[in-house]
Design a protein around this nucleic acid. Structure first.
Length: 564
RNA sequence: GUCUCAGUAGCUCAGUAGGAUAGAGCAACAGUUUCCUAAACUGUAGGUCGGAGGUUCGAAUCCUCUCUGGGACACCA
């Protein structure tokens, strides 16, 4: 199956079994460019062991290697370069894809273990901003990737539906709010109130106290406070679900912060029993000096709970409810310290499973070089961006493919795809300066580019009226011109595995760009529908490419329109 | 101040557990459509991998120091 393994096994025998096959496999690499070969084995390390020149060792190995899976073996300097048998290898991948279809690339190492994914988690009564986009799309893609690897993902939208902010909001509403206005345009009006609160509070510090006291009343079950809270929450959820629908994201649980209100006493009690809780400046904290972390605040001086308290309760609940083998928190990098503290406290409490918790941080979405802030009203609304992108995709269709039947559907798939892909294609940790222009780019390394490649390939299959023959194992092709594509198709599973192990969807994004680029070059170079002996093989390749692109896009949360 | 993330082409970024001449995409310039969707393809140009030391056969990659920028650092989440 795996050519690296086979080469390692051969080398293992040739080298008198001095180095384990596993280690040899790790030493094998891919040459910088394909003209040099498909696999390479550098002999520097061996040179030290054997006290011989690396070039000589490479030469000796070359003379001894003899395997039908290799087309030729060359030596360049200290490198042993292996060329695979293109015909055998190509026909093998294509056969694998045709028989496995969407299941191609699937892995099983997850063994059905539950993976909870804390993701998206927007704050109630605040607009769904670009900042929440990252957590949502990264979490959604990780869920799909983890599932592809045999885990059972559980997507949890840990809604920000509790906290002092509501005290502030209620205060602001009482002072300046207008029920009619809020009903008409809830989120926008509530945001205005929230921003006003912070502005006024700068010159009037008693507002902060009022906010805190209203939150206390909310926690104590005050009817008036509770009614307002419920109302704000419902209106917000309506708006959020519209956006999730647009992005095709669903959740297994909406248990947000309020859900844990009755589960926090237990945490506090547990901490007290273990004598981990100490008083400090009238507040209750867990000291984390051995862990070299600042203390973790559990209860405020007025007795109200905090973020950490709720997250502790949530962690306990999730372990008990789902028995996760991994628990992921897709939350911005600026909260790294909080998660370090959270995991450390759970470790102190003796929970071994705290080691299975991972904070999946990501860089900030910046506006004008600094963090966006709801308080200052410095936000960009996700829905507006999505709609703009969809409109732009729609315009493109009108120009490039005016006869397309389902223009609106495709525009949505492409427009939303552009935004999601733009977020996922780079390393999570990079900060992103918000740029509508970059985000709505449809050319080059973008979602629409991959989708377009898929649509073109699909179009060929439609024209050829291809019936995929699962029985066919050999073709007339030499697979010379196809080799760049077929050799890439073999890399799908490794890319998925890398993405899963590193919690990094960009591995899949980069991979499908590579496949799309290779295929587009092939497409420009070779007339696929030419009626000759190799046509069947070419069509089988095109089919394989569509399967891999479609599945790759799916793993990122994008759709693959058959025409665009 | 402490911790943390980042610094690679004009811009946005790749570079898979140190390896062969550092790669893409945008933008620029020059081309390709009687031919399977030009949202594509081809070519040109563009680089002291922030800087300085060190480790080694070999460093963008590892270590130390340093500069620049983002972020976090107790009653927000």
């Amino acid at each position: 199956m795996n050519f690296k393994q086979e080469l390692a096994a051969i080398l293992y025998d040739l080298l008198d079994q001095t180095i384990s096959a596993k280690e040899l496999e790790l030493m094998i690499e891919k040459p910088k460019n394909q003209e040099l070969g498909d696999l390479a084995f550098p002999c520097f390390t061996l040179a030290k062991l054997k006290r011989k020149s690396p070039n000589l060792i490479a030469e000796e190995l070359r003379e001894q290697i003899n395997s039908p899976i290799f087309e030729k073996v060359e030596v360049v300097g200290a490198y042993l370069n292996i060329f695979l048998n293109k015909k055998a290898a190509s026909e093998k991948v294509i056969h694998d894809i045709i028989s496995q279809k969407a299941a191609y690339g699937a892995l099983t190492f997850g063994n059905g273990g539950a993976v909870t994914i804390d993701m998206s988690s927007p704050n109630i009564a605040k607009p769904f901003s670009m900042g929440h986009l990252r957590s949502t799309v990264i979490g959604n893609s990780l869920a799909l990737i983890v599932e592809k690897c045999g885990y059972k993902p559980i997507k949890i939208n840990h809604l920000g539906d509790w906290g002092t902010q509501f005290g502030k909001l209620i205060t602001a509403y009482q002072l300046w709010g207008d029920a009619e206005k809020v009903k008409l345009n809830p989120i926008k009006e509530l945001l205005t109130l929230y921003v006003k609160f912070h502005k006024e509070a700068e010159s009037n510090p008693t507002l902060e106290d009022q906010g805190r006291s209203w939150f206390k009343r909310l926690e104590d079950g005050d009817e008036q406070a509770l009614a307002l809270w419920k109302w704000f929450r419902e209106e917000s959820l309506k708006e959020f679900s519209r956006i999730y629908q647009l992005m095709n994201v669903e959740f297994d649980s909406y248990a947000g912060e309020a859900f844990y209100n009755d589960k926090m006493d237990r945490v506090v009690k547990l901490l007290e029993e273990q004598q981990l809780l100490v008083e400090s400046e009238q507040a209750q904290v867990v000291e984390l000096t051995e862990e070299q972390l600042p203390p973790c605040l559990i209860k405020k001086s007025d007795g109200a709970t905090l973020y950490a308290t709720r997250d502790l309760a949530a962690a306990l609940y999730r372990q008990e409810e789902y028995q996760f083998v991994q628990s992921l928190y897709v939350v911005g990098h600026e909260q790294s310290l909080h998660f370090k503290q959270l995991i450390a406290v759970l470790g102190k409490m003796g929970y071994d499973w705290s080691k299975q918790m991972h904070h999946i941080p990501f860089g900030l979405m910046l506006k004008d070089g600094s963090k966006m802030s709801t308080r200052k009203g410095k936000v960009v609304l996700l829905e507006e961006v999505l709609n703009e992108s969809i409109a732009m995709a729609r315009d493109n269709i009108e120009v490039k493919n005016p006869n397309l039947p389902n223009k609106d559907d495709v525009a949505k798939q492409v427009g939303v795809g552009a935004v999601i892909f733009h977020d996922l294609k780079n390393n999570r940790m990079n900060d992103i300066e918000f740029s509508l222009e970059d985000m709505l780019r449809f050319e080059g390394e973008t979602g629409p580019y991959v989708q377009y490649t898929y649509a073109r390939a699909s179009s060929i299959l439609r024209k050829a009226n291809l019936k995929v023959d699962e029985g066919a194992l050999t073709y007339e092709n030499t697979w010379e011109k196809e080799w760049k594509v077929t050799s890439l198709l073999m890399e799908f599973a490794p890319a998925i595995k890398r993405a899963c192990k590193n919690f990094d969807p960009s591995q899949v994004a980069k991979y499908i760009i590579d496949v799309a680029q290779a295929f587009n070059k092939y497409y420009a170079d070779v007339k696929i529908l030419e009626d000759n002996a190799e046509q069947q093989g070419r069509l089988a390749l095109v089919y394989s490419v569509t399967e891999v692109l479609k599945e790759g896009l799916r793993l990122l949360g994008l759709e693959a329109p058959a025409e665009m």
